[in-house]
Design a protein around this nucleic acid. Structure first.
Lengths: 176, 176
DNA sequence: GGTGCCATGTAACGCGTTACATGATTAT
DNA sequence: ATAATCATGTAACGCGTTACATGGCACC
């Protein structure tokens, strides 16, 4: 999930420069997150190299010069393609907790139960934190959208906790 | 989620070389996945640089030489630390679908509903695929563990589909 | 006089992917 | 013959992170 397409999307309504892109990204697309410049400018370079955006230097008397980026035809096509296609499936394997469980048992470093317990503690704490934040957000107007982000996080956290129960059963059953 | 700790874990029961580590990882820790060498060897290099593993070259008459890696004291400590601590929280922001919805509306490229529809179609297909694979797996003996991986994937996919319903409501409400 | 905003970047590192490269033995 | 397995790597690229570096203006 790169920021590449996000930048293309933000440029669709009109040219912007790096600084504005960063700000727009942080307020509109990923509220309460920080994007670093070390990512913005190299990404814009790659987009330009691939002919998805083009820039013009705007000289300003009172402020530093700025590079204003605009979508190319190809960039607009790529944006449309991205918006239309569903996102890639997440890899089912590469499950860090599963690895911990298997390794805890194999190496007899600690019982799998202990791993489940630690993850459950942390998971519950995160779920409560998400709920609290959501409640706080609900009192602000025009926050329905941002609340959606917290909702997915909470739903996923719940799924993870449910899964931990299954793990505990499965690993307990084969402990003999 | 790097493979670093996974390799440490696999070495806890005794020294192994790169090739064996790759095989063990693929069969035990991430069934049905492929790990590439371009990742195994550089990771081992870094682990050795950080004094978490150490290697010995074993000359073989009939086969190519191999480098056998073993945990150091520091490596064993790091493994224990990793097994004991809960995994890092996943970033709540950085939600690609959310970005698509906001951008679809903002740029009037297509209605947010269309984005939801595409994601839902793909999401349902993936959920069915997961269910099918799980059913197939259930007929094999000793597959309870591997089935856990599919279960988490399915639970998360369900959470995502539930969330899409919320998105549709929220974006429809503000469409006026 | 300091803080924060405007505006640009670079450098070093970690981790992941794909593809390239080499060469022996063993099983079909 | 040829395919698979054993065994080692390198190179190039993408993308993410943190930290470093520069400099002017506005406001308190």
């Amino acid at each position: 999930m790169s920021i590449k397409h996000a930048l293309l999307g933000l440029l669709a309504d009109g040219p912007l420069h790096g600084y504005e892109l960063k700000a727009a990204y942080e307020t509109e697309l990923a509220p309460r997150s920080a994007l670093n410049y070390g990512q913005v400018y190299p990404t814009l370079d790659r987009l330009e190299r691939d002919d998805l955006v083009a820039h013009q230097v705007v000289t300003q008397a009172d402020r530093p010069d700025k590079k204003v980026f605009a979508l190319t035809r190809k960039g607009r096509e790529e944006l449309r393609r991205w918006l239309t296609e569903p996102g890639p499936p997440e890899a089912a394997h590469r499950n860090e907790t599963y690895m911990k469980l298997v390794l805890a048992e194999r190496t007899r470093t600690l019982p799998p139960r202990a791993v489940v317990a630690a993850e459950r503690r942390a998971g519950l704490a995160r779920l409560h934190e998400l709920t609290r934040t959501r409640a706080r957000l609900a009192r602000e107007p025009g926050s329905r959208r941002a609340a959606l982000l917290l909702e997915l996080a909470a739903l996923r956290q719940e799924a993870f906790l449910k899964w931990l129960d299954r793990c505990e059963e499965t690993f307990a059953k084969e402990e003999t």
